Structures are given as structure tokens and as C-alpha cells.
Amino acid sequence: MDHSEPATDQTVEEDERDTGQPATLAEVLLAVEELWPESLAEDWDAVGLVVGRPANPVQKILFAVDPTLEVVQEALDWGADLLISHHPLMLRGVTSVAATSGKGKVVHALIEGGCALLAVHTNGDSAVGGVSDVIADALGLEEVKPLQAARHGLPEEGIGRIGELPQAMQLGDFAALVFSVLPAVAGGVKVAGDRQGLVRRIAVCGGAGDSLLSAVQAANADVYLTADLRHHPASEAREGRPDGRPYLIDFSHFASEWLWLPAAAEALGNVLGDQGFDVELRVSQVNTDPWDFILTPGMA
């Protein structure tokens, strides 16, 4: 993969079926609930249907990390009836959806374009086959289990994952492996730890996961992969043990969650196909990582 190019270079084939009938939005919502139950969402989260009439037909579904205006335009240009985004549009309360604000513009564009919006966030993280499971699979981890068990789920459901590499490898080589499986974004991968240190027990959490550092330490992980690591939690984690473990790898929030989209689209396509519905699914190719470039020592 050429990491000088944005994540939009990664493509996913559409799931097209020649038989069956369109699903209604209500029927798609039932399929989504089967895969990513809302009961698995964290209490602070805002998942579920944001825009859309349950009785409306759905023939095209676009998956994306963020419901930005550019993504919405991509959905409308393709003729999507439903946009499924990982991040909620209305995570924090609003008092208006007037088209004078960013969120209001998104809501107006969706309604005027006849496209529904559904958020699958921490329920998509926690479910089997969720964001962290996909990262663990991409890294070849074995004996994978949740880092923090779900309060209202099965033993294999929960936030984050921890597992073992087939064999130990140096931290620098493992970081290179992480870099190789991610879609290309400006931020790259940041690493804290001994480059030659051997690692095998790996904790991962797609998206922002420094709130799980205590669980990572309790699980005796050699290294922890997550996004948006803040200065003080990262510093305290590094100083918490004399050997400096767990080592830390900070990757792009967007890139870590984009990896889940093709697997999610395939899973939903399989459920709808098994039910006899004719629905096309596509993964957004819009790079919604907020950073455009980065300067490091030695760069002009």
C-alpha cells in the first residue's frame, strides 16, 4: 500500500444481487439489530435511526465512518437510500437543525435527498466481528477476547480486544505491521516503547481508547493499540511500571474504524441476502480523517 495516498485509494466491491426484492428501512433496522444490538451501546452513546421513514424502501446502503456533508453527497450521488455511519451525527444535544449549522445542513441534505441515516457506534464496537475484532484479525491475533466485557451481552462481546501474536516480535516490527494494515492517512503511527523490545500479548481498541488503560494494564498486555491517546494518560501509563509496559501505539481514529466498514457491509449484506432482499452495499471512499499533513523532525 502506498501510504502517501489517502485512504480513498482502498476500494471495496459492491455486493450486488440479481434476485429478491427491496427491503424496507424497518426490515434493514431489524437486520442491523441482529448484528449490532443497541443494548450493547454505551450509556453515553447515541445510536440508532437519525433520519428516515421506516416504511420507505431501501435498495442501496452506503457505509461510512463519519456522516459529513461530503459523505452525504457521495451517498446521494450514488442514489443511496440509507447511510450507515459509525459515528453518530447527534452525539451531543442540539436545539436546532436549521441549515445554518453543519449538522443542520447534513439533516436537510439527507431529507431532501431521500436518504435515511443510521448510527452504529459502540454497539458496532462491542459486537462480535466489531471494530476491534477486525483489527485483531488483520494483525493475526489468536485467543482473542474482550478487553472490557459488555454489561448486557455475551462473554465474547465488549469494548476492545486482547489476544496473542503467533510468536513474539520486536516492537518496531510490530508497529510496521500495524502501519501496513491501516488505510493511508496523514498522521501515520506513533509508538512509545523500546523499539527492540519483544511483544506478544496485544491489546487493541479501535477509536479513542485511553479510558481502557487500566484494563490493559490489568490484562498484562505488552503493547496497546488505540487512537487519540492524550498526553497525561499516556505519560502515566509509561511510568506505571519499571519496564515501561504496556508499550503504546497511537494510530488514526478514522483509519482504525474504517477497517471495520467492509466487514460490516458484508455481514449486513449476508443477513439481508439470506432474507431474500435485493440490496446493494458500498463502503464510502471519502477520507474523513481530519488531518491533511504532518511535519516531523527532518522535514521542511
Rank of each mutant, 00 (worst) to 15 (best):
E266V: 13
N287A: 07
E280F: 07
T226S: 12
F293A: 14
G52Q: 08
D15M: 12
L110H: 00
E27C: 04
E33I: 01
E14L: 13
L198C: 04
L165M: 09
V28I: 11
E27W: 06
R245Y: 01
V286A: 12
D133I: 03
T296Q: 14
L154D: 15
E42A: 13
L118G: 03
A300W: 15
Q285A: 15
A175H: 02
L248A: 02
V94D: 11
E156K: 05
A150S: 13
E143G: 14
W78Y: 12
G298T: 06
A219R: 06
G130S: 06
S39K: 15
G102S: 14
A208D: 10
P67F: 00
L40S: 10
S211A: 15
Q196E: 15
L295N: 09
G113D: 00
K145T: 14
L91I: 10
S96H: 08
S96Q: 08
P166W: 07
V279M: 06
G276V: 02
Q285E: 13
Q10F: 15
G172S: 14
I249N: 10
A7C: 13
A192C: 12
I202F: 05
A218H: 10
S180I: 00
V189C: 04
V51R: 06
P290W: 02
H86A: 02
E42W: 01
R151T: 11
V72F: 00
A215Q: 14
L248R: 05
A264T: 08
A234R: 09
L295A: 11
V134Y: 03
G20L: 07
E236A: 13
